[in-house]
């Protein structure tokens, strides 16, 4: 049957079309990244005039040098790494603790709690009361505000709960017979069996923590606490201001600085860590995302 299908001409045409379409899609998605990378290594005027496509025009590394030299950026990078690492570990832990009881049918308040989760997923909090409550917890100007407010997100919680529901009840029953308590079951049985969903959610959480922009703006004042996205945004604004105004001259070396190339370098710089994370988690990623979404 299989062989027959493969030999059929229409099937081959279909496969070819399929692959061509996917390849095209991949190219379309890859192009902006390659283009941005090329711009970041191009000479300012060429980038400015839109003459750069997939290969740098007038190769230079100035944009990158400015980005890499920025001391505030190093600080911001460390802040972001801290928030992302602690945030992901914390988020996975707290999400698992909440998802486990929600996935057990004998846990009576399950339905009520699930409903509350869904309500908060659909209806977002208004900004000002949210700001006031967070402030009243004394979390202003504290880097942990970025983590505490994102420990559990409804969507990820539902994915994990659904995944846990798919695990056979017999495992739990057997463990109970052996005298294990629920914490044991969660840590020794459920979690080890849930690697795919953990990998998937780790990536979701990591992207979320890494890209955080609004929260630090709202709750942090101290420049030394700012995460990387804020500093990068500021860096771009600074270099843009430089080109828009000629108010301050009389110094050396403005020739090679260009807003476009800096912007591109900054974009790549901010995306790179997450991009590097992806290949390691990809194996679990597809499986986890699918499992979480169809079983229920």
């Amino acid at each position: 049957m299989n062989k027959l299908l493969k030999d059929s001409r229409t099937e081959r045409a279909f496969l070819f079309l399929n692959e061509a379409t996917l390849a095209l899609l991949a190219l379309i998605m890859l192009y902006p990244l390659v283009h941005t990378l090329a711009v970041s290594f191009s000479a300012g005027p060429a980038a400015e005039a839109g003459r750069v496509y997939v290969w740098p025009v007038g190769f230079q590394t100035t944009g990158w040098r400015y980005v890499v030299r920025d001391r505030m950026l190093h600080r911001a990078f460390l802040n972001s790494v801290y928030v992302t690492v602690v945030g992901v570990v914390g988020s996975l832990g707290f999400t698992a603790l909440f998802a486990y009881p929600l996935s057990r049918s004998y846990f009576t308040p399950r339905k009520a709690l699930s409903l509350m989760v869904v309500i908060s997923l659909v209806i977002r909090y208004p900004l000002i009361p949210y700001f006031l409550s967070i402030r009243s917890y004394g979390l202003m100007n504290n880097i942990h505000v970025l983590i505490v407010t994102h420990l559990i997100t409804e969507f990820n919680l539902i994915i994990m709960r659904t995944f846990f529901q798919g695990l056979p009840d017999e495992l739990e029953e057997a463990a109970l017979m052996e005298g294990a308590n629920h914490l044991h079951i969660l840590v020794r049985i459920i979690i080890p069996l849930s690697k795919p969903v953990f990998a998937t959610l780790a990536l979701f959480f990591a992207v979320n923590y890494w890209n955080m922009f609004l929260h630090p703006l709202m709750f942090l004042r101290d420049a030394n606490l700012m995460p990387i996205q804020i500093r990068l945004r500021q860096f771009i604004a600074q270099s843009a201001a430089l080109q828009d105004r000629s108010g301050e001259v009389g110094g050396r070396g403005t020739a090679d600085l260009n807003r476009r190339t800096i912007e591109a370098a900054v974009t790549i710089f901010a995306t790179l860590p997450i991009l590097m994370l992806y290949p390691f988690l990809q194996r679990h990623f597809v499986k986890g995302a699918l499992l979480g979404s169809v079983k229920g």
């Binding site: 400015y66 201001a241 110094g251 403005t254 090679d256």
Partner: peptide, 19 residues
């Protein structure tokens, strides 16, 4: 006294504004 442009100043990497 050696003047700094915003570019030089960005290169200092202190994150400060110029004025």
């Amino acid at each position: 006294e050696v003047r700094l442009t915003t570019a030089d100043f960005l290169a200092l990497g202190t994150g400060y504004r110029t004025s």
